[in-house]
Amino acid sequence: MTQPLLSIRNLTIDYIGETTDFRAVDDVSFDVAHGEIFGLAGESGCGKSTIAFAISRLHRPPALIRSGRILLEGRDVLDLDPRELRHFRWREVAMVFQSAMNSLNPVLRIEAQFYDVLHTHQGMNRKQARERTAEMLRLVDIQPDRMRDYPHQFSGGMRQRIVIAICLALNPKIVVMDEPTTALDVVVQREILQRINELRKTFGFSVLFITHDLGLMVQVCDRIGIMLAGKLVEQNTAQKIYGAPQHDYTRNLWASFPSLHGARVTEIAAT
């Protein structure tokens, strides 16, 4: 394999407590190749979101990166100074947060929120930004003339697509998606992820996809890492994670999903 796009090496992150520290991420290493969708699965509190934040250095105290390296195309993100970091965020790593539809500013028109990003990073004027906005909205199947609307005039699924459009406006190399569709229903979820999959093929960006829905993850991702209590316990291709899980925890995780067809599951996953 050639040089991976994103390479996480022996990352360890602690949350500093008054008396004891909590190790949220423990010696985690994985790579994400160009154009790949890599999935991180695990329960809440297993450290997957902490990793997502650390990649664009959005983690805040009490979180502290103890050791390890986060390399994007060979450059260590942890060495960037504040000015470089501003350039790096959003332009190279964009992020869709959990319940991202609530991350739009309710008092600004969609247009203004695109302009914010495009002006800051690319120095576009209003006219150029409008053109780019129309182009991006078309990509996510939203009528460009609706850019003058406010976020509350859109449904949850549409708002989520707008956030994704803003993320892609600067052609980032990797998009970190932290539970992007958890609050949406299945049909809308499918539509959005299908669109992300198509856009990825067109533009060639990579995706770090974080969710706890293993079934969905196997459908979308190329490779998957399973996390348990801060450790990456298993890492394999999506087919292997589904067909031949190695770690007991992965098997238990599978057992905790009621399936649509076939026998009813009875055992409760041990944690």
Binding site: V186, Q189, Q219, V220, A238, L260
Partner: peptide, 14 residues
């Protein structure tokens, strides 16, 4: 439609 959108690990998105 609802059933077809339920995540099914058997069928990849591609």
């Amino acid at each position: 439609l609802l059933l077809s959108a339920v995540p099914d690990p058997e069928i990849r998105f591609d």
